[in-house]
Design a protein around this nucleic acid. Structure first.
Length: 823
RNA sequence: GCCGGAGUGGCGGAACUGGCAGACGCGCCGGACUCAAAAUCCGGUCGGGGUGACACCCGGUGUGGGUUCGAGUCCCACCUCCGGCACCA
């Protein structure tokens, strides 16, 4: 029963490896095609369906490109540092390094089953010193460029992972990206990368990338550029102290009736008057006690407290009260806002709650100036009650006010970004140590490059205490200052694993290179990545960080391309059979290994390609995979039935209508598959192959061998075989061998289609009357418009249907249809 | 709340820039092969009406409007699902 997939798959995997079939020759790069999938993460989990869905179809694309004459490089590696391995080690009382190395061995074996073109001589493993040595080198380059700094700041803290998180790593309503625990805040001195310095370029370059719009939109939103002004409000006392605010609506400056500071704002303690002290203190404490989740809850009522202090509106000298409220965030803008309740919804709500004055300074078109405001008007209009600016349209007014502020030196044009710097310190063990030493004499000293790597010691108690585990390792911690040779201590935090994965695509060419992170010449010839494929969940983390690091390396002159990934695709998510996201807790996880055992790798990867829209994914379906098993067996039988064609052949050379039809189907099939694979529409590409298979069955099943054109069949089967091989590489290679061809099918060329063969001499037109199809007619391809209409008017029932009616208009769509409009 | 994406037969999913909706597959129905079944091969399969059987007619792409000779595709409003962001000043 069934074709012997087990034997076949094992045989070819071995043969491919032995003959180094997938060794990329880097010496010529004219047709280079760097195909990259997001590398795998060997924690406690083995390869799951998501990996297969990512890797299998992408390999099909890469094989397709190879057969089309591209010099393809498709590497694989392991993103092997990180918390899951560490947490798993704690649970099982093992060691992260042992567990990781063991998992890599296991997953590597699983990956080989996919039958992908990975060149294992180029494997990259981020937790190996030969790799993280260069991750540390990257850190040092950023440090030297002034892009790595230490700051004491409130940071996101995950109490379950016992470590800090970057902003991007807090997901949903304030939960940890890894473990879903609600995130809290802590004040800590941590290392940051100054990604905000690149905000504008990261934003601008998006336009040049062939990425899903969705992903670009997410990055744009994440960067969050907004234009406006920074305005200085002097305090009403004589202290000369200033509160800076950022606003996108300087045109509403005359409408300011109060100010609000974030409760954490450093000035709060300073300016609060004695009578308000207690109330303010209580409010500040209450805010700090609030969880991130509570604070982010939009629907709650506005709260706040008056500080007792006043500021002066620079535009009209008015004294306005200064409040504090938790709706103002310390982390956005300056942590202070000028409140314009007339034209900002939040300010309006707040003013209504605390009975603060509301002033209308922008007139909504079509309304009267003396009509009272019942809600904030946030649109454009003419400025009113705005001193010298009264009567100016608001958009123009923004510019004028900024000019006025700049002339007076009390404000300036400002572009603000939502994005914050990238927090890279982690208080955990299983990561690359940050290559910095602290010396009483010299202060913060970077480890000299020739002393890298700063090796991660093995014997460490890494149970999470909230302190960095390396803290307890005296041998690691205590060291010598590289500058003065005096006693010093090492930085004990390790790096966020997103640093590891932000440059791995540069290392693949030369994974064992000892004196540099990458071979500049090869990298400049072979990068950027031509096609990058991976999950959409990395849209604002990995994909932003990698772009940033790449851009820094570009600025520092190490590489000659600014963007790492020219073209990006995301695979969709395969859900459980119940239509829900697969998860252990729901018990709907589908294990690929069971299906590999039952159907084999080719069937499995083909089903993944055929059963889903690649970009969308969908629920897993058992009957679907059975149908793919049936199809590949059908192909197998077809080749068995046709063995004689390759062995004996015959003299039958006729090309009658049956043969013509077969040829036409072949070319249609080639065309469809060619276009669809290129654009990642694997499901329709496979359906084109099925059509060809069906046609071949019809042809060979209906007549004796003597009346089958063996020469033609041979040619078509060979072309079909080549196309099949990119989807089912093992089966493809086996059939190629069995039909007497030389190893390997992957040295062949993808078949070309002849567009002329797809053009028929006559074209069928649908004849519509008032948009409804009534008849069909065949006319010569080159027929004139008039000839087509004439033919249509005489076809079948058309004359009768037109009888007694008046033709108003006739539309002819070339090669498609003609529509006769009658009354 | 805002920003994206999607909603098409019993099911997975096709349909390039507006042009014959439902490719391909699953399921189901029928036929061939078989003593029989499975497997396989061949054919049918959107719904309703109509016919002895055809022909043919009508309706149909989440809902309601609109633009157009013509709308799954474009526009407006709404509903549902998924993803992102969430008091962003």
């Amino acid at each position: 029963m069934g074709y012997p997939f087990k034997r076949i798959e094992a045989k070819w995997q071995k043969r491919w490896e032995e003959t180094k079939l997938y060794k990329t020759d880097f010496s010529h790069h004219r047709n280079k095609c760097y195909t990259l999938v997001m590398f795998s993460y060997p924690s406690s989990d083995k390869l799951h369906l998501g990996h297969w869905f990512n890797y299998g179809p992408t390999d099909t694309w890469a094989r397709f490109r190879r057969l089309r004459g591209y010099n393809v490089f498709e590497p694989m590696g392991f993103d092997s540092f990180g918390l899951p391995a560490e947490n798993y080690a704690i649970k099982t009382r093992g060691h992260p390094r042992d567990i990781t190395e063991e998992n890599i061995r296991y997953i590597r074996r699983q990956l080989k089953q996919i039958g992908a073109m990975y060149d294992w001589d180029h494997e990259v493993i981020t937790s190996r010193p030969e790799y993280y040595k260069w991750t540390q080198w990257i850190f040092l380059q950023l440090y030297k460029a002034g892009l790595a700094y230490r700051a004491n700041a409130p940071v996101n803290w995950c109490p379950s992972c016992n470590t800090v998180l970057a902003n991007e790593q807090v997901v949903g309503d304030g939960r940890c990206e890894r473990c879903d625990t609600p995130v809290t805040k802590r004040n800590l001195t941590q290392w940051f990368f100054k990604i905000t310095a690149y905000a504008e370029r990261l934003l601008q370059n998006l336009d040049k990338l062939d990425w899903p719009e969705k992903t670009k939109t997410m990055q744009r939103h994440w960067i969050g550029r907004s234009e406006g002004a920074e305005i200085d409000f002097r305090l009403a006392d004589d202290s000369q102290r200033i509160i800076k605010v950022f606003t996108t609506r300087p045109d509403t400056l005359f409408g300011v009736t109060y100010m609000v500071l974030a409760p954490e704002h450093p000035l709060v303690e300073d300016i609060t008057t004695p009578t308000q002290k207690e109330e303010v203190q209580q409010y500040v404490e209450a805010t700090l006690r609030e969880s991130e989740i509570e604070r982010l809850f939009t629907e709650k009522d506005k709260t706040g407290v008056f500080t007792g202090a006043f500021a002066v509106n620079p535009v009209n000298g008015e004294k306005v009260p200064i409040w504090i409220a938790d709706y103002v965030l310390m982390t956005y803008g300056t942590g202070a806002v000028m409140a314009v309740p007339g034209h900002d919804e939040r300010d309006f709500e707040f003013a209504a709650t605390f009975e603060l004055p509301i002033r209308k300074v922008i007139l909504e078109p079509g309304t009267r100036e003396d009509a009272p405001l019942t809600a904030a008007y946030t649109g454009e209009g003419v400025m009113i009650q705005s001193g010298p600016f009264t009567g100016v349209p608001s958009q123009e007014g923004r510019e004028k006010i900024i000019q006025w502020l700049e002339e007076k030196g009390i404000g300036r044009r400002k572009i603000n970004y939502r994005m914050r710097d990238w927090l890279v310190s982690r208080q955990r063990y299983w990561g690359a140590p940050i290559p910095i030493v602290y010396c009483d004499h010299c202060g913060e000293v970077p480890v000299p490059e020739d002393q890298l790597p700063v090796e991660l010691p093995y014997e460490v108690d890494f149970r999470p205490t909230g302190e960095s585990p390396l803290q307890t390792h005296e041998g690691f911690k205590n060291t010598q200052c590289p500058q003065c040779r005096g006693p010093a201590t090492r930085e004990v935090d390790t790096m966020d694993t997103f640093v590891d994965s932000s440059w791995y695509y540069l290392r693949y060419f030369t994974p064992h290179l000892e004196n540099a992170p990458f071979d500049r010449e090869i990298v400049n010839q072979w990068c950027p990545v031509d096609k990058y494929v991976g999950g959409a969940e990395h849209a604002t983390m990995h994909l932003l960080y990698a772009r940033f690091v790449n851009m820094v390396l570009y600025d520092l002159g190490y590489i000659q391309f600014e963007e790492p990934f020219t073209s990006l695709r995301h695979q969709g998510v395969i859900m459980g059979p119940d239509g829900q996201k697969m998860s252990k807790s729901l018990g709907n996880v589908v294990n690929p290994d069971d299906y590999l055992e039952k159907y084999g790798s080719d069937v499995f990867r083909c089903y993944l390609m055929f059963g889903f829209d690649y970009a969308m994914g969908g629920p897993w379906d058992d009957s679907g995979i059975a149908s793919m098993d049936r199809y590949l067996n059908r192909v197998w039988r077809l080749f068995q039935n046709c063995r004689w064609v390759f062995r004996e052949g015959n003299a039958y050379r006729r090309k009658g209508p049956e043969e013509e039809k077969l040829i036409k189907t072949l070319h249609r099939s080639i065309k469809g598959a060619t276009i669809d694979i290129e654009r990642f529409h694997f499901n329709t590409a496979i359906s084109r192959l099925m059509e060809l298979t069906n046609e071949l069955y019809r042809y060979t099943g209906n007549r004796p061998r003597e009346e089958q054109n063996a020469g033609l069949l041979k040619e078509i089967l060979e072309k079909f075989n080549i196309m099949l091989s990119v989807f089912a590489p093992h089966l493809g290679e086996e059939l190629w061998e069995r039909t007497g061809h030389d190893y390997s099918i992957f040295h062949q060329r993808w078949p070309e289609y002849d567009p002329k063969l797809l053009e028929e001499d006559t074209v069928e037109y649908a004849i519509q009357i008032n948009g409804k199809v009534r008849e069909k007619v065949r006319v010569p391809r080159e027929a004139s418009r008039e000839a087509i209409i004439q033919a249509a008017l005489q076809t079948g029932r058309i004359p009768k249907l037109l009888d007694g009616k008046q033709i108003v208009k006739t539309i002819v769509v070339p090669n498609k249809l003609i529509n006769i409009v009658i009354r």
